[in-house]
Write a protein that binds this DNA or RNA. Sequence first.
DNA 1: GTCTATAAGAAGATAGAC
DNA 2: GTCTATCTTCTTATAGAC
Lengths: 203, 203
Amino acid sequence: MDTKKKILDVALTLFSEKGYGNVHVGHIAEGVGIKAPSLYKHYKSKLDIFEAILKEMSNRYDKEVSYLSITGSDSELDANIFAKISEDELVKMGIGLFHFFLHDEYECKFRKMLTIEQFSNKELAELFSNQYINEPLKYQTGLFQRIILQGQMKNENADMMALQFYAPIYLLLTLCDREPQREEEALRLLEKHIRQFSRMYKE
Amino acid sequence: MDTKKKILDVALTLFSEKGYGNVHVGHIAEGVGIKAPSLYKHYKSKLDIFEAILKEMSNRYDKEVSYLSITGSDSELDANIFAKISEDELVKMGIGLFHFFLHDEYECKFRKMLTIEQFSNKELAELFSNQYINEPLKYQTGLFQRIILQGQMKNENADMMALQFYAPIYLLLTLCDREPQREEEALRLLEKHIRQFSRMYKE
DNA sequence: GTCTATAAGAAGATAGAC
DNA sequence: GTCTATCTTCTTATAGAC
């Protein structure tokens, strides 16, 4: 097994639960199954481990964006699929997105880690905003612009539609990060939200 | 000047910037203008300071809720005011609320502190959810129910209207906590959101 | 690459003078 | 109520054997 990789896994788990400052190299080592000094054969410092996580997750993110087209400038392609789907399918899409964000192991832990560390420096603040605010809004704005052009929805501001569609998803996601036991409740609200949103904007 | 109170002020400021684990009693003492051991004449431990902040902010919150009626079960009263106001006045109300949450010194620091510490135990998670999710949604649901009854808005689910009205405010608030330089942008989006929301649901 | 031993310093907290 | 001095423990990191 790749120890260097396992160190990042364990560290990400601990950082996402307690935050960087409350995790000690001894805890990470214990999770990996080695002694603390052995960590230093793989990474030169605790900060080095943290930065390796950022780099690793940045790579993962880039791959997912280009593969799943969750965000990015590729909403042109999706709109054709989107425009033809029913309200039921829109719900299915929203819930699928929600599930992925909430249950993908790395996605979830990384988001919690950034939530804790977002105020500690400007780079982490920007990273959080880009990944969880700017990019999703940009993508969904493009999507709604297409849907409007195709006459499926009312000719309102697409960026506000994206905000009004996405903000509840974001709120429910951060709610479930904090209180995982409320996932069922969140899913009910999410479905109701998308159905009502769909009904209000339908042309 | 009240040293005991000043300790809480300084500690809250530091906790909201760096998180509990990254703040040391020496830092707090320095901010207050005394030496670390002197802190222990006022509080018996670092954790004791943290808990005193929670208690203090809980008192502040109770007073504000009952005084400003921002949340609570008093939406019956406000609906009469609300129902008669124009879209412009609805915008003014939303922006006023946003400004208060964002610029009230204690409100802002406490929210950041809870954001950082929300995953460290269940009580803090519940506190965050109650104060920034459950209570605002409950209040606004009551408000929209009244507005619907008075025939001012479409007869849709009031709880979804509350979610769709409040979630963008919440998203923009957390955005400004993270990147204060984006406040102007957030205010523009907020106004656009409320105007579009108002237009979509207007009967 | 992993271990034990240990350095070097930081951090929370106490004792006791003033 | 504040200070200096100090204790104890924790924490990161290094040295060097295996």
